[in-house]
């Protein structure tokens, strides 16, 4: 039974069979691993939120998955004016649902940052947490570094005036330079810094390292200027929204 390997029919048949086998295999593997991958992503987000709370830096990703509800008591989505969106207020009794667009946990900030160009139209999720009786507001921020996205989670005190903790991460900043924003020495500088002055909201400045600092300034990364600027920009753009909400909440 001689098959002509140079014939068109053979070539096409071979290609079709190969593609079907490979496609099936990949679909099978992708489906099988999907739950694990989703869990990793979800736990990572939980970990960010818990890590920026005071004294919680060492919580691991797996721990974060199970301990989340012990810390995060309420969650809510705000608009740009710092007003609560309807039906978005949830407490820890309602389980996290990343399919529900009214659940603050489901908001994909990176997607919104890329697709919604006006900051006024974006959603602003907020996580209201409790550590040892103290109330903290955890605000996610999203911006761009030198190569791709950088993001962070900032814990504000109950007056919305002081930073109680911060974590930052990045997609692909240069290791050793911009990537250092996710290191403790950079993140810990933000603890105790103020975002409020007598005249209202005042943004944090990320300065060139080495210059003297006041309550509104932190050292940037030398060699990571673009990334530092990105951190400053995303915090400046976003934190005012949350401060408005917290101030209004405390006033009423």
């Amino acid at each position: 039974m001689a098959v002509n390997k140079d014939s068109n029919a053979y070539t096409i048949t071979f290609a079709i069979i190969l593609v079907i086998i490979v496609g099936g295999l990949l679909a099978f593997i992708s489906n099988g691993l999907k739950p694990l991958q989703d869990k990793n992503l979800k736990n990572e987000k939980k970990q960010y939120i818990l890590n920026c709370l005071p004294g919680n830096k060492l919580i691991s990703r797996d721990q974060a998955g199970t301990e989340f509800a012990n810390y995060v008591k309420e969650r809510v989505i705000l608009n740009y004016n710092g007003e609560q969106l309807e039906n978005t207020f949830m407490n820890s009794d309602q389980s996290l649902d990343d399919k529900n667009p009214n659940d603050a946990f489901s908001i994909d900030l990176l997607k919104e940052y890329k697709t919604i160009s006006k900051k006024e139209d974006r959603n602003y999720p907020l996580f209201i947490c409790e550590v040892k009786g103290e109330k903290y507001y955890v605000a996610p921020v999203m911006g761009k570094g030198l190569w791709a996205a950088v993001w962070g989670y900032i814990a504000l005190d109950e007056n919305g005036e002081k930073i109680a903790g911060a974590v930052f991460d990045h997609k692909s900043e240069t290791p050793g330079l911009g990537a250092e924003i996710s290191q403790d020495f950079f993140e810990d500088q933000f603890i105790g810094k103020l975002i409020s002055s007598e005249s209202g909201y005042k943004a944090i400045e990320v300065n060139k390292p080495g210059s003297p600092l006041n309550d509104y300034q932190v050292d940037g990364i030398s060699g990571g200027t673009f990334t530092s600027v990105g951190v400053e920009e995303m915090m400046e753009r976003t934190l005012s929204v949350y401060q408005k909400y917290i101030k209004n909440l405390n006033r009423s």
Partner: peptide
Amino acid sequence: LIPNRIRIIVQLV
């Protein structure tokens, strides 16, 4: 089995 004409594509796949 690989047809000579599409061998690079097969390798790539």
